[in-house]
Design a protein around this nucleic acid. Structure first.
Lengths: 347, 347
DNA sequence: GTTATCTTCCAAAACGTTTCGGATAGACGA
DNA sequence: TCGTCTATCCGAAACGTTTTGGAAGATAAC
């Protein structure tokens, strides 16, 4: 006992106790073929007896892999918090844990930019791969990771979206279909409530809607668009009011997010405009609050948890088996609740 | 250039480039006094030039600290997801990041118990400290960490809650006050809807209510209690119905959680029982859905994000400055919405 | 001129693991 | 009997960092 007074649960201690070399113990636990079955069993038994778990730092140093996947947590001071963050994290972490990886996250402190934080993580070897979300049309983080040749998967795409793995929902198609459906319902005068931030999803959703209009080729169709800062809800009122008060006010307002749509419903109610009687409103995301509004919001749903879990799988695929780039576009489903209706022919 | 063909951004490479020893470079960056100011500046400049970030594994190995704080993510299949998880994670991570730490999380896979996962993390040196939540009256994880003398802070307490740091909300006092308030409103027949799980908060909340009743000493007061599994909402209906259908049905049903309270409101509505007219219902937690129910739920609020951030601070205090045990009990605030009212004197 | 004290630097060890390149011994074939 | 194989084991290096215990030279004190 005293002879083998090594550190608690190290390979060295195990080796000493067993009268074997560190190498053999390591290889026995690693399941290599050049260690006798008898000794392998002896080693495994001894390891289990003392609850041996390899020190991660030692392992990292030599293998260069940590078993961690990093995630940058956007820290917003705004009272609007992300209702899906919990689900997202859960899905990611679950997907990673299934295959022996862990998730770790950093909130970027206000002092440093998100890019700096990312570099710090990558250069320090803290993570084997990264998960990125909230992708902008031209995203510095994506550029950095690509030229650094560091594994990552993005939730969302940049405009130039080749050469890396991502998963995204097809906002283009969704908004295209949305227009067609609303047109069928008789709507001709549309309001599109968008965001100012240069997010790629903004472009796709706007484009989808515009393309659908063009494809229809009906000159009766009019579209007015407003863009507002996504996280500054106090600025929305003015834009929404200007839509509602326009001379030929839209019979349908299509919002890029549920938060915006709910705000439209609220402003409309304040003005005595009946939704969906004289105004149809739609959103995107299906946040929990969407089913509590009056009327309940018609919106698109994307299953956050499962897509996060898919992301994890996709990431580990590219990590483990050196599979190349994988990209996955999924279609959100339209949840028809109560904030839509046929257009009144009030012209 | 070719001479110093060391690994990219290592100390070794820096040392070679500068014509200094590894030791000196390390100590220069560490700000030790035994390196000349001139060389220090030279080293710092060179380090910044190549964006040097110390390899975490090397550092961990020698210092024994990883800069990570671990968190076990409870993976529930149930459709009830934790609406506060996102806020909680955000608060924790923000609090840790402020002081140079990162949060990492594992979901316990179904194969292993939560305790096993915890041991694995601790023994592998993956984390410097742990954050525990959902504390049971007798919690194996707490026991393990205490006897292992591993730093941690718990969100919630075990029954025997000395010797370790925790932060909790005072459910005992809250439910005590709640009874007194309802009594003032004229209520005498109470239903207490509790949970089956042996969580410590259950005991405190139940005790607080019962103690208040005893203290009041009014023999007119009656209490019927039901306990249901917290995460199996399909089992709640029967228990709630039995309360609602009792001969002397309660005029006030006090639920241990908002989910339960909302379920009560729902069942009552289905039976045509007017809330709050002939039945008062209260909850606990102030989940987002609580302000969307009809009527809006009267409940207790605890600021999740800020208390998570406090936890992080508390944890790092005990880590950094070897401060002893710290325990913090905070009072939730009663949010009086619309699901309560005076008792009708229908006896 | 000698000794003591700073200042500034560095070699080497240590942390715990994996892995490369043998080494030993017995089995086997000739 | 000798060489060749195979099965089994091990020593030593390597990963990148921090830290211990000096060493060398310069400066101050006597």
């Amino acid at each position: 006992m005293n002879i083998a007074a090594k550190k608690k649960g190290s390979l060295k201690a195990l080796a000493a106790d067993l009268g074997l070399s560190i190498t053999t113990v390591s290889r026995a636990l690693g399941g290599y073929s050049d260690v006798a079955e008898a000794t392998r069993l002896r080693v495994v038994a001894a390891a289990e007896a003392i609850d041996y778990v390899p020190n991660i730092a030692g392992k990292m140093l030599v293998t260069g892999r940590s078993g961690f996947v990093g995630f940058l947590l956007p820290l917003r001071d705004s009272p609007i918090f992300d209702p899906f963050l919990g689900e997202y994290i859960t899905g990611l972490s679950a997907g990673l844990a299934e295959r022996g990886h862990n998730l770790f996250m950093t909130t970027v402190s206000s002092a440093q930019t998100e890019l700096t934080a990312l570099q710090h993580i990558v250069e320090s070897g803290r993570a084997d791969a990264m998960v990125l979300n909230r992708i902008a049309e031209d995203d510095k983080r994506v550029n950095y990771l690509m030229e650094r040749d560091f594994p990552f998967v993005a939730h969302g795409r940049t405009l130039e979206h080749t050469g890396y793995s991502w998963i995204d929902t097809d906002g283009q198609q969704a908004f295209h279909d949305l227009f067609d459906w609303l047109y069928e319902l008789g709507h001709r005068r549309f309001g599109l409530l968008s965001i100012t931030e240069a997010m790629t999803f903004r472009r796709y959703r706007e484009n989808g809607f515009r393309t659908a209009i063009n494809n229809k080729g009906d000159s009766d169709v009019t579209l007015s668009m407003q863009r507002v800062p996504r996280f500054e809800s106090h600025t929305w009122g003015q834009a929404i009011d200007s839509m509602l008060d326009a001379e030929h006010q839209p019979t349908a307002i299509v919002a890029l997010t549920d938060e915006l749509a709910l705000s439209v419903i609220e402003r409309a109610a304040a003005r005595g405009i009946d939704v969906p009687g004289s105004l149809t409103v739609t959103g995107f995301d299906n946040i929990p609050a969407a089913q509590f509004s009056k009327p309940e919001l018609t919106t698109f749903d994307q299953s956050i948890r499962s897509s996060a879990q898919q992301m994890a799988g996709l990431l580990l695929d590219t990590l483990d088996s050196q599979q190349g780039v994988r990209q996955q576009l999924s279609s959100p489903t339209l949840i028809k609740r109560a904030s839509h209706g046929p257009a009144l022919n009030t012209r």
